[in-house]
Lab assay of single mutants.
Amino acid sequence: MDEEYDVIVLGTGLTECILSGIMSVNGKKVLHMDRNPYYGGESSSITPLEELYKRFQLLEGPPESMGRGRDWNVDLIPKFLMANGQLVKMLLYTEVTRYLDFKVVEGSFVYKGGKIYKVPSTETEALASNLMGMFEKRRFRKFLVFVANFDENDPKTFEGVDPQTTSMRDVYRKFDLGQDVIDFTGHALALYRTDDYLDQPCLETVNRIKLYSESLARYGKSPYLYPLYGLGELPQGFARLSAIYGGTYMLNKPVDDIIMENGKVVGVKSEGEVARCKQLICDPSYIPDRVRKAGQVIRIICILSHPIKNTNDANSCQIIIPQNQVNRKSDIYVCMISYAHNVAAQGKYIAIASTTVETTDPEKEVEPALELLEPIDQKFVAISDLYEPIDDGCESQVFCSCSYDATTHFETTCNDIKDIYKRMAGTAFDFENMKRKQNDVFGEAEQ
């Protein structure tokens, strides 16, 4: 370990593993360490099931009705991949897709007046949907046509809207959309967690709705994908990429100290040895004095023996409960997957309800979601602090990732990755940087 590296990475969460992969592909010498004996950090999948019970201090362990412990891979952080989103792009560019198998999530649902409705995925579904009345549908269709044709580089498509100054509230007004449709559009399509976006320039919202539609167009059922064997497969896929390009991995490796000289990182000390480096990437748990708390998320993992009611017996789905429907500031989400994804025993389902904490009784906040899941065989409640770095790391060369937020997709995580890359490399992130180099010394032969 007593060696000189360009970059040392602490923690094998998804953000850290993707950055480690990119740095290795770009010719950097990388050492990647984790104090845990497993990959994934906060974003790991726990197996066998006995391990999950232990982690949540349920000492009696799983009953026999849960089947074989080894058949379970339970995500600690519930997220899906947008089919046309940035993480899929990263997987394709790096060819990490060859280590993973994905399934399309069967449906996306939205909560309205105590019931759940399928988010329409085709024009026919939209016309048949009970989510809105006849005239509302016509106006909504006009709005969707506007979004589909919108091109930020072609003012002819703006229809009198200025993407940089017109607020989204004004765009909704222009198409005369009612409150329910606005809730549905902002939260189930643009996937905002709160209503803060309404008074911001509309460009980002329009682009988010386009991303949803384009992702949906790829597979038809929903815009989301999920990897077989759980999300823990993602960091491992990128760790393989890093290793192929010469990255060194050490799990179960305690970090005793991060060594600084004149305010700059110069190395990491572990078990009496020092590895030197020019730059350091880590998750917040490794540098508690360089991060601040930015809120909390509650996630309740529920094991069920039945599909969720009114989802047409889907073996995977997402449910969004827009905040307006339950008098909150932030949406509540449910991600459900099952034995069909090799993450649970035969006939079992895993539904994870999550939201940003707003009160001193977080469990009560998630109740509307839990009511949709009854009866629940077993619950595991996790309340996590969200951390963000206190500075950009440019001076110390210590670059810290943000905690995983309450969103049900990876777009915010990818933004964090691109942002850290830019601060480390001094140049904007470009997907081309992730391409495997042809015929290089570490390149794998085609399968």
Rank of each mutant, 00 (worst) to 15 (best):
K269M: 09
K379Q: 13
T360N: 14
G41C: 06
G113L: 13
K54M: 00
G247K: 14
R290F: 06
G178E: 06
E446G: 10
F238R: 02
P223Q: 00
E106D: 08
F399D: 01
S222D: 15
Q236L: 01
Q296S: 01
E42G: 09
L58N: 06
E50R: 06
N207C: 15
I18C: 12
Q447P: 10
D289M: 07
A83V: 08
Y387D: 10
G267C: 05
I209L: 03
Y197C: 04
R173H: 14
R218M: 12
F143Y: 03
R436A: 03
F431N: 03
N312R: 07
E271S: 03
L372Q: 02
I46G: 03
I417L: 13
Y224G: 06
Y404N: 13
D419T: 09
E16S: 04
Y404C: 10
R98L: 07
N312Y: 13
G113S: 15
L189V: 14
G113V: 05
P288R: 12
E16A: 09
L81A: 15
T413N: 04
M260L: 14
S20L: 01
V381D: 13
M434I: 07
L280R: 01
K264H: 15
F431V: 05
A243D: 00
I287D: 11
F431S: 08
D196V: 03
E50G: 11
K118P: 04
G443D: 14
S20Q: 01
H341R: 02
Q323W: 14
F399W: 15
V357G: 07
T47R: 01
D162E: 02
N26K: 05
D34M: 04
C414F: 12
T165S: 12
L52Q: 08
E136D: 11
L87I: 13
K118Y: 01
K379H: 11
M336R: 02
D392S: 02
V145D: 05
V105K: 00
V171Y: 14
D34G: 04
M82V: 06
F442N: 14
V334L: 07
M424N: 15
L127V: 11
G247A: 12
R35S: 01
K379R: 10
G347S: 05
V147E: 06
S338Y: 00
S338H: 08
K221L: 12
R436P: 06
T205G: 13
G443P: 08
L81P: 05
V9K: 14
N310F: 07
T407N: 05
K221T: 12
P163D: 14
E4K: 04
R276T: 15
L304M: 10
R141T: 11
K269L: 08
S45F: 01
K137E: 02
P284H: 00
M250T: 04
H187P: 05
C17T: 04
K264F: 05
E273W: 15
G13V: 00
N439H: 04
Y38A: 01
D6A: 05
N433Q: 13
I383M: 11
Y117Q: 01
A351G: 01
P322Q: 12
G107Y: 15
V274A: 06
I281V: 11
E432G: 10
K142V: 05
M33P: 11
T408I: 06
Q323K: 04
D313G: 11
P37L: 09
L191T: 11
K348W: 14
R138L: 10
L373R: 02
I303K: 13
Q447E: 06
S270T: 10
N327Y: 03
L52T: 03
F143L: 07
G230R: 03
E358V: 01
R173S: 14
E125T: 02
K29Q: 00
E358T: 14
K103E: 10
Y111S: 05
P163F: 11
S396N: 10
Y224D: 00
P163H: 00
P362H: 00
S20I: 01
C202H: 13
L191F: 05
M424I: 09
Y38K: 05
D392G: 11
K329D: 09
A425D: 02
I22T: 09
C400Y: 04
T412K: 00
P163L: 11
I301W: 13
S20F: 06
G21E: 13
A126R: 04
Y93W: 13
E50Q: 15
Y39N: 00
N315D: 09
P62H: 00
F184C: 06
I258A: 15
G160A: 02
K269I: 01
T15L: 04
T360S: 03
G443L: 15
V30G: 03
Q296C: 02
E64Q: 07
G85A: 10
F146C: 11
G41V: 01
E106G: 05
E159M: 13
T427S: 05
K422P: 10
L59E: 02
S129A: 00
N26P: 03
K29M: 02
V343E: 01
E395R: 13
W72C: 01
K309S: 13
E388V: 07
E106Y: 09
E261L: 15
D440L: 08
I281F: 04
R328M: 04
I420T: 07
Q200H: 05
V297T: 12
Y39W: 14
F442V: 13
V268G: 01
E60L: 11
V30I: 13
R240G: 02
G113E: 08
G13C: 03
D75E: 03
E271M: 03
D361N: 09
S285C: 12
K118H: 01
A425V: 09
K89V: 05
T124V: 13
G232H: 15
W72Q: 01
T311P: 03
L280H: 15
K210V: 08
C17R: 01
L144Q: 10
M66S: 00
C335G: 14
I46F: 06
K253N: 01
R208C: 08
M434K: 06
E395D: 05
L177M: 00
I352N: 12
R218G: 05
I308N: 06
S213Y: 12
T359W: 07
P235A: 11
L31S: 05
M66Q: 08
L59N: 05
L81T: 14
Y404S: 10
P284V: 15
L100V: 14
I350L: 10
T360P: 11
N327D: 10
S108W: 09
L280V: 13
V145Y: 05
A445Q: 06
D180E: 13
V105S: 06
K435S: 13
D2A: 05
M90A: 14
A382E: 10
D440Q: 05
A294C: 15
S167C: 13
S403Y: 00
G267W: 00
K422S: 15
L189S: 08
K137R: 02
N153K: 12
G61R: 12
Y245D: 00
K103Q: 07
V398I: 14
R55T: 11
S44L: 05
F184T: 14
G107F: 05
G272I: 15
D151S: 14
T165I: 11
S167A: 01
L76V: 12
V74Y: 00
F158S: 08
Y111R: 04
G11R: 02
N36L: 13
K28Q: 14
E106V: 09
E16W: 02
F429G: 12
D71Y: 04
K112F: 02
T47A: 07
T194W: 04
R173P: 02
K269C: 14
Y286F: 12
K29D: 13
D361K: 14
G69Y: 08
I352L: 01
K112S: 13
G230V: 01
V171G: 06
M434N: 11
G113T: 06
V9D: 03
P284T: 00
F431R: 14
L191P: 03
V357E: 03
R436W: 15
I352M: 11
N153E: 15
A369G: 10
F380E: 06
N327K: 01
K269G: 15
I258R: 02
R240M: 00
A445W: 15
F238S: 02
S401Y: 01
Y219D: 06
T97Y: 15
S401L: 03
K89M: 02
K28N: 07
D34H: 01
E367H: 13
F410Y: 04
K379I: 11
R292P: 05
F56C: 03
D283L: 03
L10V: 12
K103C: 12
Y245S: 07
C400F: 08
I332T: 04
S45G: 07
E123Q: 15
K89G: 02
E444Y: 01
D385C: 11
